[in-house]
């Protein structure tokens, strides 16, 4: 049942993404409204799917890669919906929702085997640590999307090409401050994620920090975002440089999240756990 609902959510997300893209192309308001409504429906269905899976497993479904990616997509659509509701960044849906669809598709292509939880992961810290981390990733993914939009728009204005893209994207200031908001939310979550992970590590393995590749790369990511925020607050970094930094930060994050599991062996191998 949960799998069926997952497929439906994926389909609805796809429809919503198509709607947002159609809105950007045709500039019809109706398309955006329908797309936003569809995304909300998809989010609800997805929520139910995750809840059912949780019930069936008896632990939060954030252990293997399929579950983790699904949860990430869920968190992304949730935070995008909140964002869309409160501070509307014009045309953002057309950039954010396709990314959600990509994450969902990646999730659906992963093995989804329900095996009992390995003893090392049996802890209250699992849901706390993993949830916080994934929420941080979701919000930082939005910052990444907004930064791409910023670079696009900045390029149009610099090169004096004031065509369709120029007209459809929001103002530079709006994009810049939206990205800043996302990082201001995402960074504390990331920090909290690392701290809770460290506490859990102490309980599970007896050491707060053991320089496991995942830990190392999280720290690198954390430093990147910390540097970005620091520069923003002290010398007022913004615009192009901040956008590029946000994108680099997210790519590092992506590597930490996925790359490390496949390339470097360590304790966080949830991706390859059962393979």
């Amino acid at each position: 049942m949960h799998d069926f609902l997952f497929q439906i959510a994926l389909f609805i997300y796809f429809f919503a993404a198509a709607g947002f893209v159609a809105h950007v192309i045709t500039m019809r308001k109706g398309a955006e409204r329908i797309a936003a409504m569809a995304l909300s429906c998809g989010f609800v269905v997805h929520t139910i799917a995750i809840a059912l899976l949780w019930h069936a497993l008896g632990h939060p479904p954030i252990v293997n890669m399929h579950e983790t990616l699904s949860f990430l997509a869920w968190a992304m659509s949730g935070s995008f919906l909140i964002f869309h509701h409160y501070s509307k960044v014009k045309s953002m849906g057309a950039f954010a929702t396709p990314l959600i669809v990509v994450v969902m598709t990646a999730s659906s292509m992963q093995h989804d085997r329900m095996l009992p939880l390995p003893p090392a992961l049996k802890s209250l810290w699992l849901p706390i640590h993993a949830t916080i981390c994934l929420l941080a990733y979701a919000v930082l993914a939005l910052a990444f999307v907004i930064s791409i939009m910023f670079l696009l728009q900045e390029r149009q204005i610099k090169r004096k090409r004031l065509g369709g893209i120029f007209r459809r994207l929001p103002s530079l200031d709006a994009l810049d401050s939206a990205a800043e908001t996302c990082i201001k939310i995402g960074f504390p979550l990331l920090t909290l994620g690392i701290v809770t992970g460290s506490i859990w590590a102490e309980q599970a393995w007896g050491a707060y920090w053991s320089w496991d590749p995942k830990e190392t790369w999280s720290l690198i990511t954390w430093f990147l975002y910390a540097a970005l925020l620091h520069q923003r607050f002290t010398v007022g970094w913004r615009g192009r440089r901040a956008a590029i930094m946000t994108i680099i930060g997210f790519l590092t994050l992506l590597f930490t999240f996925i790359g490390v599991n496949y390339l470097l062996p360590g304790a966080h191998t949830y991706a390859t756990w059962y393979d």
């Binding site: 204005i157 007209r167 929001p170 103002s171 530079l172 200031d173």
Partner: peptide, 21 residues
């Protein structure tokens, strides 16, 4: 109705795309 057809309108339109409000 969406386009600036004088220099000063164009300047305002551009300023809007940079600064928003």
């Amino acid at each position: 109705a969406s386009q600036a057809v004088s220099i000063s309108y164009a300047a305002v339109e551009l300023a809007r795309k940079i600064f928003g409000d």
